[in-house]
């Protein structure tokens, strides 16, 4: 006959203290900078702690380890789903502090229920883990680590996201958020900030030319290596008329070819006549 496995009895209060300490550490960990260490510390705790506390507070005995363990992460997720609704209902924002404190409250409440409930003396932790179980746990852990590392590495080595070439050309700074046609003084120089990104996979020389009301301005040449970005301004002098002038900023690869991209926006001329016309709804 096999000797009975050695066991360590944990009193109810001890179990409750362990849970409360875990909850406290979870709350403290949310103050750590957001990095891998915090994720590794917090994520397993966050997935297990609330479910564990609820499982302790429930009546009856869980005889089978597999379902008892399997249901714990789901109970934790159930807690987060319901507690978020409760927090929202009382007007509290869902953020690290409020979530961590709600976990603390749950753990304290469940711990109290567990401690105060009659008829259950505590829990026994078996120390007599068999060599087979140790081997299995080691194998499972090794497999999990290997699986994660190999999957992430394989995804990096064998990239599977097609990268069709393209060029990105856009208005920049406050000009990218224009709500209505900007006012410009006649004869004044208009400097429009633009940004350019070369995602073609090869170095390209771009020509940027402003065209205001059909009149071409001076061309700016920009050389960009593959993957490089550029930001700068393109200038042109505003005309007196018409009152609304369309500014087109053309992007081409050479003077001989048609523009590959273009940006366009309306400008309003700040003359008395134009402002009066605009006031009349013209």
């Amino acid at each position: 006959m096999m000797p009975p496995p050695r066991s360590t009895r944990l009193e109810k209060v001890d179990v409750a203290v362990v849970l409360l300490v875990a909850a406290g550490l979870l709350t403290l960990a949310t103050a750590l900078p957001a990095d891998v260490i915090r994720t590794v510390l917090v994520l397993p705790t966050a997935l297990l702690l609330p479910g564990c506390a609820v499982a302790l507070a429930l009546p009856g005995q869980a005889r089978d380890p597999i379902p008892s363990m399997g249901v714990i992460p789901l109970l934790s997720l159930a807690f987060y789903a319901f507690s978020s609704l409760v927090l929202s209902a009382v007007g509290i924002r869902l953020q690290a502090t409020s979530v961590a404190l709600s976990v603390d409250v749950l753990v304290a409440a469940c711990g109290a229920i567990f401690v105060l409930r009659r008829g259950e003396p505590g829990i026994a932790l078996r120390s007599g883990f068999g060599a087979r179980a140790v081997a299995l746990i080691a194998l499972g852990a090794a497999a999990a680590v290997a699986l994660t590392l190999v999957t992430v590495s394989a995804a990096r080595v064998f990239t599977a996201t097609p990268q069709p070439p393209y060029t990105e050309f856009a208005l920049a700074r406050q000009w990218s958020q224009v709500e209505r046609a900007p006012l410009v003084a006649p004869g004044a120089r208009v400097d429009v900030p633009v940004s350019l990104a070369n995602r073609t996979g090869q170095p390209v020389t771009y020509l940027i030319t402003p065209v205001l009301a059909g009149v071409r301005g001076s061309t700016r040449r920009v050389q960009l290596a593959a993957g490089a970005q550029w930001a700068g301004t393109i200038g042109i002098r505003a005309h007196d008329l018409p009152c609304r002038q369309r500014l087109v900023i053309e992007l081409a690869r050479s003077r001989a070819t048609r523009p590959m991209e273009e940006l366009a926006l309306e400008l309003r001329t700040r003359t008395r006549r134009c402002l009066l016309a605009a006031g009349r709804g013209g």
Binding site: P5, Q61, A62
Partner: peptide, 19 residues
């Protein structure tokens, strides 16, 4: 088993193969 078999205890039973 005389002790309480809560979920934590159940975890502790992991080493015992199901009969």
């Amino acid at each position: 088993m005389t002790q309480t078999a809560t979920s934590l205890a159940a975890v502790a039973d992991w080493s015992e193969p199901r009969i």
